[in-house]
Nucleic acid binder design. Structure first.
Length: 549
RNA sequence: GCGCCUGUAGCUCAGUGGAUAGAGCAGCGGCCUUCUAAGCCGAAUGUCGCAGGUUCGAAUCCUGCCAGGCGCGCCA
């Protein structure tokens, strides 16, 4: 409906060009929004006020009246248009449009909400991408959920989606990991504990060492760090994948940074940077020239040890992804990557990469609290909270719903003590309960009998019935906006809106025991549409839609 | 010091330059002989961090300031 009105307004503006020469219809950036109050109709637009400003017209209401007169709608869509307030146009949608929509939703079923705007296009979503140095933390949880929900939203919009995980199993941190495990292993053999400087202290290190001891006995007493590193990597990656699986997440591709060295891609980037005079040698290292790229300072690309910093592979990786032909490449990054991400994209752009296709989804950190006290998260000290632990406490549905619930830019708080009590507090239950309530009606024998009777949706005239249909009708536009803005939280917010409309309808409009059989039949169909809508929203979020609670 | 993010009801947070700023939770008052009360209805709750500016109109845009988070490494 939003689109129908927007198209009509565009057409009306075009038709008014003759009488208003100063008007540039394409530059009238108007919005069509749901009205905030019932007396303002179903939807409203500010188009006349924007146009009036462009025309320099003093009387905005007069412009609005002219625009309203120029609007044309197909029969059975808009019942009437009113000029109101400072120059709004309020649209009152024809009841028939909404009544018919119930049938459309039921017919669409699993496909209600699906869009076609991504048909024929592919998108790559890179997320989680934690190096295998330890179990996933609560912080990774937000990344995982945001990435997977964005991937799901793209699938619902018709895109072909690749879920990708980028990791590095080489370098200093992995070396430290190997040494940490070796130290624990030797401790098990009776040697004094000699953890390396800055080594990993989490309990999982000792667990890996204990497993090695159990499997191989004392044979590794003199083994090289690399042996322990390899074992640790395998164990930790298996755990990371298992944790993701618990969240309903799997990846299509694991991209190893090492492959960029093997293929020569990293050397190629370095060569090109030198060719463009964007790299120079100093102090035994290779530096990136910041100024021509709009960066505040120069950065090291290759350390004096000859080893590249993380930047170079990151640049090669983005060029690789862009070269694979995706229409859109999405990165899900925590707030700590903001600056480096700018550097990488600046270089990619300078080397001819089309960074317009790269969308960076930045999210702020999660503050963990327990019993009112803030919990600090660090992988190297053993003070983090694992995502597995959180899943044990509240379950996958709650983890997904909670992380998807807040805007990525919010510095959200996750209180573990609250999460434990969350059976009563979590807004997810409100939505799931709505779904379960509908199913309990549809399960009844009377419902099956009723469903066979003739359907007359024109009987749906109650305020609560109409409000529920309006809510259900909005799914496609909510999805479109969540996609455009990369804001998954719009879906839980919307789900609550639909659930509220349903609960109000349920309370006010008896279904099976309606005044007449015909009305009962019509309401049953509406309940069916509401069920489909809630189930599909929950599917977009990857949260279960229980039939009983 | 510089960059990015945030500041909205007691708490956690929505809010596309638009009309009287919303939800959940907590608290207060009602509603179960009737399809699931994990629900509904009602009342109450606000210096939209502060101060300027732009605009017909600002929680929203601009500037400055205050507070918190993150970053500014030859770590990733």
């Amino acid at each position: 409906m939003q689109q129908i009105i927007a198209d009509a307004v565009h057409a009306a503006l075009e038709s008014l060009r003759a009488s208003w020469p100063a008007l540039e219809p394409d530059r009238v950036a108007f919005t069509v929004q749901p009205s905030s109050r019932p007396e303002h109709g179903d939807l409203q637009t500010n188009a006349a006020m924007i146009a009036a400003a462009q025309l320099g017209a003093r009387d905005k209401r007069a412009v609005a009246a002219d625009l309203a007169a120029a609007l044309t709608f197909a029969p059975g869509t808009i019942a009437r248009v009113e000029v109101a307030g400072p120059g709004f146009l309020n649209f009152f949608v024809d009841d028939r449009y909404y009544q018919d929509l119930v049938a459309r939703v039921v017919a669409a079923d699993d496909d209600w909400g699906r869009l076609t705007l991504g048909t024929g296009q592919s998108v790559n979503v890179e997320f989680v991408s934690a190096n295998p140095t330890g179990p996933l933390t609560v912080g990774h949880g937000r990344n995982a959920v945001l990435g997977d929900v964005v991937a799901r939203l793209h699938e619902w919009a018709g895109y072909k989606v690749t879920r990708e995980y980028y990791f590095n199993n080489a370098g200093r941190q992995m070396h430290l990991l190997g040494e940490s495990v070796r130290a624990r292993y030797r401790e098990l053999l009776g040697a004094p504990l000699e953890l390396p400087e800055g080594g990993y202290q989490g309990g999982y290190i000792a667990d890996i060492a204990a497993t090695l001891r159990a499997e191989q006995g004392d044979e590794l007493a003199a083994a090289d760090e690399a042996v322990f590193r390899g074992a640790a990597e395998r164990a930790i990656f298996a755990q990371i994948e298992a944790t993701c699986a618990r969240l309903g997440i799997s990846f299509d591709r694991f991209f190893n940074e090492q492959s960029l060295y093997d293929s020569g891609a990293i050397q190629a980037v370095l060569d090109q940077l030198r060719t463009h005079d964007l790299a120079y040698e100093a102090d035994g290292a290779t530096w990136l020239r910041g100024e021509p790229l709009g960066l505040d300072k120069d950065r090291v690309l290759v350390k004096s040890s000859g080893e590249p910093t993380y930047r170079l592979p990151d640049m090669a990786y983005h060029l690789d992804k862009l070269g694979r032909g995706y229409e859109t490449v999405i990165d899900v990054f925590g707030a700590d990557h903001i600056d480096t991400c700018q550097e990488v994209l600046a270089v990619v752009r300078a080397l001819g990469g089309d960074t317009e296709r790269v969308k960076v989804m930045l999210y702020q950190f999660v503050t963990l609290t327990r019993d009112g006290q803030q919990v600090k998260m660090s992988t190297r000290q053993a003070t983090y909270e694992t995502l597995d632990g959180l899943l044990d406490e509240v379950g996958a549905d709650a983890v997904r719903y909670f992380f998807a619930l807040r805007s990525p830019t919010s510095h959200m708080e996750f209180d573990l003590a609250l999460a434990l009590r969350q059976a009563n507090d979590n807004p997810m239950y409100y939505v799931q309960y709505g779904h379960a309530r509908i199913n309990s009606i549809l399960r009844r024998e009377e419902a099956a009998a009723l469903a066979a009777e003739p359907l007359d949706l024109a009987l749906l005239t109650d305020e609560a019935e109409r409000a529920l249909i309006v809510a259900v009708s909005r799914l496609p536009e909510v999805l479109a906006r969540a996609l455009a803005e990369h804001e998954p939280h719009r879906l839980p917010t919307y789900a609550a809106e639909v659930a509220t409309a349903f609960h109000q309808f349920y309370d006010r409009c008896p279904i099976l025991s309606a005044e007449t059989r015909a009305l009962a039949r019509a309401r049953l169909e509406l309940a069916q549409a509401a069920r489909i809508c809630l189930r599909n929203v929950l599917a977009m979020l990857g949260v279960s839609a229980p039939e009983r609670m």
